Amino acid sequence: MELENINQYIRSVELNREKIRSFSEYPYSLQAIRKLNVLRFHPSVTFIIGENGTGKSTILEAIAIAYGFNPEGGTKNFNFSSMDTHSNLYSNFKLVKGVKRPKDGFFLRAESFYNVASNIDELDKDGPGPRIIDSYGGISLHKQSHGESFFSLFINKFRGEGIYILDEPEAALSPSRQMSMITRMHELVQKGCQFIIATHSPIIMAYPNSVIYEINNGFKEVKYEETEHYQVMSSFINNKQKMLDILMEER
């Protein structure tokens, strides 16, 4: 990874291990957290990848909350809560920030974006002043498909000089939209934005100006072609019939 830039918004996260009572309790029992000391972020894009259950979303959530975002997502101005399910990991995270403060920011959680959309509609219905939805494209996110609402967020809400923490943004996006997301990410990176993304998408994680951390019994920096996601997808596409025969053979 290139040297940290003191102007990047989040330079690293440190786990205050001395404050943790027990590493046998969740989420500290997760291998990724048990072995975590310091995780350094790329000035532009950091990908966190791994199998289901390895702790990607838990860690991303803690980073976002420690930075001041609402646990269910949105900007720092969102303070709604539909269900209190987040862990206390954020209280044991120390974020090392750069000298420059962002002008924009957003925490996207695919699983709770519906709640963000609902909160926007409620605030616009009850509150005076300019409509919040106008900064998201002007059309209620509930009146768009799941994928359209995600992409509307990327195109309309995200601006320059922002910090964007995204948990599985590909969840509602078609492959072509995922490629379009790379284009949008690149535009925003050139405008001074920083992304921290947890993803399963081999398309999105192909963005070159980045670092990829793979969770597998701890964090390991890997090259794109070394990721399990790339290797599995490549093997399936290039050997479709053989892979199908293996997957569907009678046992």
Rank of each mutant, 00 (worst) to 15 (best):
E25W: 13
T75V: 05
E61Y: 08
A64Q: 14
F41P: 01
S44D: 12
N70H: 04
L36I: 02
I33F: 06
R21G: 02
I63Q: 11
N37E: 13
E72G: 08
T54M: 07
Q31C: 13
P43W: 03
G74T: 00
S44F: 06
S44A: 08
L39A: 01
N52E: 04
L39M: 02
G73V: 00
A64S: 10
G53A: 07
A66R: 14
L60D: 14
N52M: 10
E51D: 15
G55S: 09
A62M: 08
I33H: 13
G74D: 00
V45S: 06
A32P: 10
F69H: 09
Y28I: 04
F23M: 02
I59Y: 14
E51M: 08
A64K: 06
I20V: 14
A66D: 09
Q31A: 12
I65K: 07
V38Y: 05
Y67G: 09
R40G: 10
Y28T: 03
R40S: 12
N37Q: 10
I65Q: 00
N70G: 01
S57N: 14
Q31G: 08
S29L: 10
T75Y: 00
I33P: 03
G55I: 01
F69Y: 15
L60A: 14
V45T: 07
F69Q: 00
E25N: 11
G73N: 05
G74L: 00
T75I: 05
